[in-house]
């Protein structure tokens, strides 16, 4: 077992005992359970969950992630005074938070469906896409949080930056896209729109979910272009690659910074 795996094991023990992650899982559990109890249909339950996954999940991952790393500073110092290489520690810390968060999300959203059952196969597929995109967003936004936390020494400043990043990716970016689409309304926009979608992980996740949920509304030309793209092996490859880039780039710069950082 290498050092990353060892650190991960102890981080898991630590994080799983902290109330935050438990509360996070319980939140998803109660939310899903309540939606399934009181929601009118599985489709509307999935829609509500989708909104939570696209908005709340990135926010929680960012805030949790930055706070976690700021709070772990003493622990980091302790471990760095041990014979442990920094990349191993960084990897252990990252997985030590991202894995429990993703697990909490998955358990919270999927378990209620286990005992309530899923109405139709199409809903099961939507749930699967929801679980996958939610997990991907968790890993991406924890990576962004780590980059922010190692980049900014000051906790308040780091938290502020995290909120701005969330606001931009989850809300403002779409405003800019809408503006661009209307400014260039006279040109064929399907391909540029596709590219713009790939550039924002939240948008990418949203469109992947749209293709599951709002299939009837998306049956127009735009929808056809997108469905053909994301329905093809090539499209799935590009979408996965885009998500991986969103994961790798913050992790790379975060680690580089972490390696050079003074504690």
């Amino acid at each position: 077992m290498n050092a990353t795996a060892k650190i991960l094991t102890y981080e898991l023990q630590d994080v799983l005992r902290s109330r935050g992650v438990i509360a996070y899982a319980v939140f998803f559990l109660l939310l899903t359970e309540a939606l399934l109890q009181f929601g009118s249909s599985t489709a509307s339950v999935l829609l509500s969950l989708m909104n939570v996954v696209l908005l709340l999940l990135p926010l929680v991952s960012l805030v949790f992630g930055t706070m976690y790393l700021y709070n772990a500073r003493d622990f980091v110092e302790l471990l760095l005074s041990q014979p442990i290489r920094r990349p191993h520690l960084f990897g252990g810390l990252y997985l030590g938070l991202a894995v429990p968060l993703a697990t909490g999300f998955l358990a919270g959203t999927c378990l209620p469906f286990l005992w309530h059952g899923v109405e139709a196969a199409s809903h099961a597929q939507t749930l699967l896409v929801l679980a996958l995109t939610g997990t991907a967003l968790t890993f991406i936004f924890v990576a962004l949080a780590f980059l922010i936390a190692v980049r900014f020494e000051d906790k308040a400043r780091g938290l502020g930056v995290a909120l701005v990043v969330w606001l931009f990716l989850a809300v403002l970016y779409d405003g800019l896209v809408l503006l661009a689409l209307h400014m260039f309304a006279n040109y064929p926009l399907e391909t540029p729109a596709l590219v713009l979608t790939l550039l924002n992980p939240v948008d990418l996740a949203r469109v992947l979910l749209l293709l599951q949920v709002d299939i009837s509304a998306l049956m127009g030309y735009t929808g056809a272009v997108f469905e053909r793209f994301f329905g093809s092996l090539f499209g799935v490859g590009v979408a996965s690659a885009a998500l991986l880039v969103w994961l790798a780039v913050p992790l790379f710069f975060g680690l580089r910074r972490f390696n050079r950082k003074d504690f």
């Binding site: 102890y10 630590d14 994080v15 003493d74 005074s81």
Partner: peptide
């Protein structure tokens, strides 16, 4: 081969 005792000892809270 180095032992270190920091000025203020802080550890992972839940361990």
């Amino acid at each position: 081969r180095i032992g270190y005792m920091p000025q203020i000892a802080r550890f992972p809270e839940n361990l």
